[in-house]
Nucleic acid binder design. Structure first.
Lengths: 214, 214
DNA sequence: TCCGTTTTGATACAGTCGTATCGATACATT
DNA sequence: AATGTATCGATACGACTGTATCAAAACGGA
């Protein structure tokens, strides 16, 4: 009796929300946000329209949830890349982050497409822009810490303003990530990898100044 | 009699196509590509649905035309920035290009929003991706020339691979341009300007190595 | 077992979409 | 002035949209 009153009755509601959000992202990666409708998402998730409606009151709620989830997936990957004392050098961390964004598999390609779709939407929808700004602030904080540490270690090219560098890195991350979108389907990733190398080299001032660490 | 059989009958057709494309871009900047429909574009342009239909057989034709026109506007501005012998230094040219992309006025902000919308569309529409790839190739060629010249002048940071640098610059241009989208409405442009400065400094290896020119 | 509450899927509704059609209009030519 | 043709705006069509509604089914607690 009353073993857990907080848990939803039939299925785990949060899990189903994630399931629906994943279906939305699959459609968005395949056809863009224009192909996303309550009906298509429900069909992709194997649910009825009413079920999706009940889990997410409105379509915007669904979109926003899917955006947050999509970015949570990416940042979860990044959480494994630790820059700082006891972790990676700044250059190596930057290289790994940028490389991780490249569309090396279908999942990453889909992420980039979804990101571009949400990005475009944020351009005209203040609600989405707010969500983006919040995530932006988080990324900025993480980058600031990494750049601050890199500056201490003398790992940066001389004459770089750390705050300006943080802004540049934000731009770089976006640019690299979105470059997946403009890459022709069959093309190799060499150009993108080259861009990553050039970015790391430019930011850190060539290969390896500053203190090296194991 | 037959004074000019090539000219359209009532109005200049090409001019009206441009007029319609401009109306489309206004809507895209305001509401995104989702707000663009034959009806809304016709209304914005002050025309009937039938007129727009006749000028552009299908909606995709209209979108593609508007995309090319939008990018022609930007590249026309860039054509005034000449890097090379008798022109600007590489660093100064790069700084001007990136700065010109910043949303310093409503027109530029609109351009960035339109760009983000087309970008997202190209992610899932091969026809648009082809158009983008073509424009991409043009930008790449221009950048290659500029970078080649900068390398000759010793204006680049040491150890930079010119080809890789070209790819990085493409990424930078995209990133800077699209950063307009994520900027909160009232915020200052200082962060973006800082990113531009940091980008120029990183790529050219700090302020002014290489030969200076007037 | 029965009741009360949720959850469900189907359907209804009012719009909008892209496109096709078509009579009226406006012009060039004879 | 009459004719033929190209252009015009309006409207029709079927498909789709987001959302609301609602009977039926499924479950927990008694």
């Amino acid at each position: 009796m009353c073993q857990n009153t907080a848990v939803p009755r039939y299925v785990d509601k949060d899990e189903r929300r994630r399931h629906v959000a994943a279906a939305l992202r699959r459609i968005a990666a395949r056809e863009g946000l224009e192909g996303v409708s309550i009906r298509t998402v429900a069909a992709e998730a194997g649910l009825s329209v009413g079920a999706v409606q009940r889990d997410f009151g409105t379509k915007d709620d669904l979109l926003r949830f899917a955006l947050r989830e999509a970015l949570a997936n990416v940042s979860r990957r990044f959480s494994g890349i630790r820059v700082g004392p006891g972790g990676l050098s700044f250059a190596e961390g930057l290289r790994r982050v940028l490389t991780d964004l490249l569309p090396t598999d279908d999942e990453r390609l889909a992420e980039a497409r979804v990101w571009s779709a949400f990005y475009a939407r944020a351009a005209v929808d203040p609600g989405f822009a707010d969500t983006l700004a919040e995530l932006d602030a988080r990324a900025r904080a993480a980058l600031r810490a990494a750049v601050g540490w890199a500056a201490e270690q003398g790992e940066l090219a001389p004459g770089q303003d750390p705050d300006a560098l943080v802004e540049l890195l934000l731009v770089l991350v976006d640019g690299i990530w979105l470059s997946a979108v403009r890459r022709p389907p069959g093309a190799s990733l060499d150009a993108q990898r080259a861009a990553v190398s050039a970015a790391v080299a430019a930011v850190t001032g060539g290969e390896g100044r500053g203190t090296r660490r194991g």
